[in-house]
Design a protein around this nucleic acid. Sequence first.
DNA 1: TTGAAAGCGCTAACAT
DNA 2: ATGTTAGCGCTTTCAA
Lengths: 344, 344
Amino acid sequence: MSQKNITIYDLAKEAGVSPATVSRILNGTTAVSPKKREAVMTLIHKYQFQPNALARALSEKRSRLIAMVVAHAENSYYNSLFAACESEAYRRGYVTVLLSTHSVPETEESVIRRMGELRPDAVILCGGRIDLAEPDPDFIRMLASLSERMRLVVGSQSPRPGIPGIAVDHEKSMELALSYLTSLGHREIGFVYTGAPYYGTVQRLTRFSAIMDAMHLPLHPEWLIEVPEYDIPSGVIGAERILALSHRPTAILGMNDMVSSGILQGLLAHGVQVPQDISLLGFDDTFVTRIAAPHLTSIGYDYPTYARLLLDAALYEGDPGEYPQNQIIPVYLKVRDSCRRLDV
Amino acid sequence: MSQKNITIYDLAKEAGVSPATVSRILNGTTAVSPKKREAVMTLIHKYQFQPNALARALSEKRSRLIAMVVAHAENSYYNSLFAACESEAYRRGYVTVLLSTHSVPETEESVIRRMGELRPDAVILCGGRIDLAEPDPDFIRMLASLSERMRLVVGSQSPRPGIPGIAVDHEKSMELALSYLTSLGHREIGFVYTGAPYYGTVQRLTRFSAIMDAMHLPLHPEWLIEVPEYDIPSGVIGAERILALSHRPTAILGMNDMVSSGILQGLLAHGVQVPQDISLLGFDDTFVTRIAAPHLTSIGYDYPTYARLLLDAALYEGDPGEYPQNQIIPVYLKVRDSCRRLDV
DNA sequence: TTGAAAGCGCTAACAT
DNA sequence: ATGTTAGCGCTTTCAA
């Protein structure tokens, strides 16, 4: 790591031109005589010159950088979303970086703050406190003030006008799941859900009850199984609760693919076969569905579309007030091997 | 998104002090009279002032930003590593961002370049061309010139002096795997490996043959099964090749957890039980081991240690020439349920 | 303790 | 087509 960083001034002096000319060559903003261009290009290669993007961003007031802040970088859902956004942004000439908050409020706060100070052209926030069904006013205020300085987009319900929200259609996802299961002849359906006070979670739970009710399907309280997390162990816990039931439902919905794969394991460990003895369905349609055996049928979201909408909002140049405050991501059902038709 | 960004000049004017004083208050570099500090702090809160980190970094020549560039952000191995680095860096006052190259050479080149232009304090490069057993001279040259401008660390063998490399002890990992399997009484062992020309891959394969040879264990060429990728489908392919064997080994090593879980599925699909009929072992010890049923026994690496060494190297202030060029990450064996003792 | 001013490396308006 | 120069927002001597 040498000390002296070479600048366009150094290049300019050695090539006998002005710094502005070097800048023009670098950016192709104005025509430059072939001779000078040639001379400068030679030096650029000679020194492996890399323009300082900090200085450029400071001057231009744009960095071509997008920051995506997620709750858990290790979560396959955010992973898929990041990958999709990254590709889409790259296509549009932006580089995207991922930051993780580990869902720790203070880390979340400081990561968002520090990233904001770095002045990316936009920050896309997914998961964490923004997903709370009961928004935290202080947090929203913080985001609001951030959004005055830069483009902010959230991957959930918009917390307030001026901050576009692009969210998965959680209600529809539950409808899809339930209509599929009932089309297979299931009437006794359980739901292993997470008690976390997140929007999508609450929405799915509410919708579940409402639909079951509307369809006049039996809804025993003990078939609504609350587990602590969105992970595998929680699924295992859910399975144990199911196994302990005097009368088991014929189909189970897991909160997400991880929970469902945990349920699957718990069930298998006790000799209960999926889908022979019980059908199982997941949400998110992540790669986890294909690690599980049998492969999990799951409700997924159109990630490329999600990414596109997120970026459209993030890179929108006009008046934020005119941008649609909320947009919805379509969901789909991916049938695999974990649900079976019920014999009549 | 309003237009005018508030600066320390604005604060200074309104508080009746100089910009330098505001800067001092912001950084606590010099004592400032309580009165002025008070006045300025009030304004900071009033305007929710956020200093511009670009300007600060440009001036200070340090950003407290670390960039980690990996081949596949979706890969659980890189995920675990990023999470560990992120935590460790956060503890040291740095924010870490993750960039993915999707293992596409040109993307890799441009992502590294653009990230370099952003002048993070260090970039940690993991996976991709840097892992090639036969290094690409042009790529190494590019890295070398990058490393003259900033601290560069690679998560593999050091490609050249001045660029510290921290790598997993691949040879040891194979030794561990094989000594465990033989301790269980296995002598007939197969290896489903990826043909990719990566360092760790080649090293493991070489070591596998060498150890089998040294231990006088049978090594049929058809037990060395090459598959195309590091993913689940490749594991399934591997399983099919195993099933087609006239004489099957009693234990199988998969290239990583994904491949092993694919093998597991392929085997189960044909009624071959793990570990009853065949034992199975993975590498990386990612969460995939716990999604598989039975849970996979796997060789893992000490991620917190890995992260610590990576960051020690990344944040080392002294002469890079004096920093150890290569360091090794210890590996461990995590026994779960996919291997059984062979009856004698 | 505080302020003035130079500088970090680049872009863009203005002038030529 | 090209050079000069004034910022961009912050830190940091240097003086006072």
